[in-house]
Amino acid sequence: MTSPNEQPTLMQVLREAGAAVRVFDMGRRVSTLTSDEFERIEEARTPYPTPFLHHAWLGILIWHPKQPAQNAIWFLKLPLDEQGYLVQAARDDLVSRLLLNAVNSQQGALEEDALKDNPYSFKPEQEKMAIFHARAAQATSAPASAYYEAAQQYINGSMPLDRWADLALQGLADLVVRLDDNSPALAARIPEMPEPVLASIATLLEHVTPPVAVRDALAARLAGALTEGEEKALLVAALIRGLSNVADERFKQQQVLLVLQSEHALEAEVIVATATRCSSALQAPEVLLPFLERLAQGKAGQAGFSRVLADLMFMPAQRALIMQAFRSPERSEQLSKAIGEMFGQTFTRH
């Protein structure tokens, strides 16, 4: 318990409400944060591990096994300082608002209404919301959604390929988080899957680690898409996202290099997907410099170059590698010009 004059942490507030809690990172991909990790982040003992657009994006699942009516889901977006630590004033303000709303509510419970008119709340995009709900069901031992069965029928071949429009995004998310049961059928279906449903599944797969068979099937579709025109840019972006969380880092680097060697890398959707989802692959110098060159040449222009780099350089490890690549004697005149536009011409002369 906290003393009367001490501001409690968010985790303390939740625990004192008697709730079971699961915290998810909702930024670049949906992943679990342990309670210990979150407490260290809350207390500014460690920087946020995966910042996105200078914020921590959180999904908090709150459930009461004995009082399910009090279950709640909160989506919170909290600012980070220049070193990636949670801004304590914002965290304190959030907790104060939550406590005030809880006191004003009829039961004093920390329900979803506690976020009413809260400036730190946000609504995730549909794909992340679907994955979150699929993960939340697993965490609470709840069954998958009613849409899961149709998704299974589709990948098992008992539903025609052209019936993909009958599938719900939630059903596909339930399938993706249950790959232990579904990966052989999914891998077998990917080669012939129509592009709209393939893109949806690939985008969902970035939130899990796809098994080798699924990974290889996605890579084969990516290789095919890279031989076609710019109208395939959205599919290429989705496929590189689907491959962004594979276990084999070298394999991932090879896929990113294939994309960077294609004209698709000039398209904003493709270069942004590569930057935001495959940042670990960009830690290899032989991948990072071609990425920077393509970024400088891209159709999004100088504004796109600056925005993407500002986000990447917010991560300390990535920042050091990018600064090193900027000084490579192999950089092109076009890349030097883009760097000069972003940081000033004196930077490129050092």
Score class of each variant (00 low, 15 high):
Arg45Asn: 10
Thr46Val: 13
Pro47Val: 10
Pro47Trp: 02
Tyr48Ser: 03
Tyr48Arg: 08
Pro49Leu: 03
Thr50Trp: 13
Pro51Val: 14
Phe52Trp: 12
Leu53Asn: 10
His55Cys: 12
Trp57Leu: 14
Gly59Asp: 04
His64Arg: 09
His64Pro: 00
Lys66Gly: 04
Gln67Arg: 12
Ala69Gln: 12
Ala69Cys: 03
Ala69Thr: 13
Ala69Leu: 11
Gln70Gly: 08
Asn71Ser: 10
Asn71Lys: 03
Ala72Phe: 05
Ile73Arg: 10
Trp74Asn: 03
Trp74Asp: 01
Phe75Ser: 09
Phe75Trp: 10
Leu76Ile: 15
Leu76Trp: 01
Leu76Ser: 05
Leu76Met: 11
Lys77Tyr: 08
Leu78Glu: 15
Asp81Gln: 05
Asp81Glu: 09
Asp81Met: 07
Gln83Pro: 00
Gly84Ile: 11
Gly84Arg: 09
Tyr85Thr: 07
Gln88His: 11
Ala89Ser: 10
Ala89Met: 07
Ala89Leu: 06
Ala90Gln: 05
Arg91Tyr: 00
Arg91Lys: 10
Asp93Ala: 05
Leu94Arg: 02
Leu94Cys: 06
Leu94Met: 07
Arg97Pro: 04
Leu99Arg: 15
Leu99Gly: 08
Asn101Arg: 14
Val103Asn: 02
Val103Gln: 12
Asn104Leu: 11
Gln107Thr: 14
Gly108Gln: 05
Ala109Trp: 14
Leu110Ile: 13
Asp113Ala: 15
Asp113Tyr: 11
Asp113Pro: 00
Ala114Gln: 03
Leu115Cys: 14
Tyr120Pro: 07
Ser121Gln: 14
Phe122Trp: 14
Lys123Met: 12
Lys123Ile: 12
Gln126Cys: 06
Gln126Phe: 06
Glu127Met: 12
Lys128Ile: 07
Met129Ser: 14
Met129Glu: 14
Met129Phe: 11
Met129Gly: 09
Ala130Met: 08
Ile131Tyr: 04
His133Asn: 10
His133Cys: 09
His133Pro: 00
Ala134Cys: 03
Ala137Ile: 03
Ala139Arg: 08
Ala139Cys: 05
Ser141Asp: 13
Ala142Cys: 03
Ala144Arg: 06
Ala144Trp: 00
Ser145Glu: 05
Ser145His: 06
Tyr147Lys: 06
Glu149Trp: 02
Ala150Arg: 12
Ala150Met: 12
Ala151Cys: 04
Ala151Gly: 01
Ala151Asp: 01
Gln153Asp: 15
Tyr154Ile: 10
Ile155Ser: 01
Ile155Val: 15
Ile155Gly: 02
Gly157Pro: 00
Ser158Trp: 04
Met159Leu: 15
Pro160Phe: 14
Leu161His: 06
Leu161Arg: 12
Arg163Asn: 05
Ala165His: 06
Asp166Asn: 04
Leu167Gly: 02
Ala168Ile: 00
Ala168Met: 01
Leu169Gly: 00
Gln170Ala: 05
Gly171Cys: 03
Leu172Val: 05
Leu172Met: 07
Ala173Tyr: 09
Val176His: 02
Val177Tyr: 02
Arg178Cys: 11
Leu179Phe: 05
Leu179Lys: 04
Leu179Ser: 04
Leu179Met: 14
Asp180Asn: 07
Asp181Leu: 11
Asp181Trp: 05
Asn182Tyr: 04
Pro184Ile: 13
Pro184Val: 15
Leu186Val: 10
